[in-house]
Design a protein around this nucleic acid. Structure first.
Length: 275
DNA sequence: GTTGAGCGTT
């Protein structure tokens, strides 16, 4: 028997569904459970079957309680050989929760503005940061919206799950800061986990990452014009960036900057291209 | 009893 009593669809609210393709026609939910449960709380496994014959249709839906755990399972299990076949694991795109989840991902781009921008130093008062997420966002999401964060310290996380062009534009306003601008331009088509790019002061960074079938190039240029460069620091971390053979595309960025100078001009461009 | 791109049950 299954771990999940098959008396109709369970409560699927607040769950994250993975589609598991290419399983054998003999594979059962009980076979999959120990595999997937290693990476998080699996709340349901459903293997669609032929109405008439009851035969497996060769794929499964595995539902997790938490998105992070589902993501982990994708990372760890996609491509894994199970019972002689290489399974494909990806987020379910057309299920009942798919729309909600896509929205969450998009809203996350906005909502993950963790903290406020820090503006300290002589003659500098508290300022304001406006973070705009460009139009490239998936439709129905936060495209074009602007978020304002006030306070101290700035961090922006962008989580995207599809091909998209994103512009994150942070502008300092008021606060005696002079001109400060951080522009992050992302152009990507694929994802690649664990890539970390830290830009030190004045850095010019170029990295190439090669994945099976996908070439990702990351270009970052930093131009700084500061009166007092020594009091300026910034970094951009590509927290996660995954090129996925089966279509899951995800990128997470953590961009921070600290302006400590009365006059600063900063332009950071990060470009990723898939060839 | 076999097969092999795909997205969902009571």
């Amino acid at each position: 028997m299954s771990h999940f009593g098959r008396s109709g669809p369970p409560d699927i609210r607040d769950t994250y569904s993975l589609l598991v393709l290419n399983i054998t026609f003999r594979t059962t939910a009980d076979d999959l459970f120990p595999l997937f449960d290693k990476y998080g709380k699996v709340v349901d496994i459903f293997i669609p079957r032929d109405r008439r014959t009851g035969d497996s249709r060769g794929f499964a839906f595995v539902r997790y309680k938490y998105a992070e755990e589902a993501q982990k399972a994708v990372e760890k299990l996609d491509g894994r050989n199970v019972d002689g076949r290489d399974i494909m694991v990806q987020f379910a795109k057309y299920g009942p929760n798919a729309e909600r989840i896509r929205k969450e991902a998009g809203l996350g781009a906005a909502a993950h503005v963790k903290g406020p921008v820090m503006i300290t130093g002589a003659g500098i008062t508290e300022g304001e940061v406006v973070v705009g997420v460009g139009k490239g966002m998936m439709k129905g999401l936060v495209g074009g919206e602007r978020i304002t964060a006030k306070g101290v310290g700035a961090a922006v996380q962008v989580l995207i799950t599809t091909r998209v062009v994103v512009e994150v534009d942070m502008r300092m306003s008021e606060g005696g800061l002079g001109a400060g601008q951080l522009t992050v331009l992302l152009l990507f088509d694929a994802v690649l986990f664990g890539a970390v790019l830290v830009l030190e002061e004045g850095a010019h960074h170029h990295a190439e990452l090669l994945l099976p079938g996908v070439k990702v190039q990351i270009d970052a240029a930093v131009m700084i014009d500061l009166q007092s460069p020594e009091v300026f620091r910034h970094n951009i971390n590509l927290l996660s960036l995954e090129a996925h053979p089966h279509g899951i595309q995800m990128l997470m960025i953590d961009a921070r900057c600290v302006f400590c100078s009365g006059k600063s001009e900063l332009l950071i461009g990060v470009m990723m291209m898939v060839m």
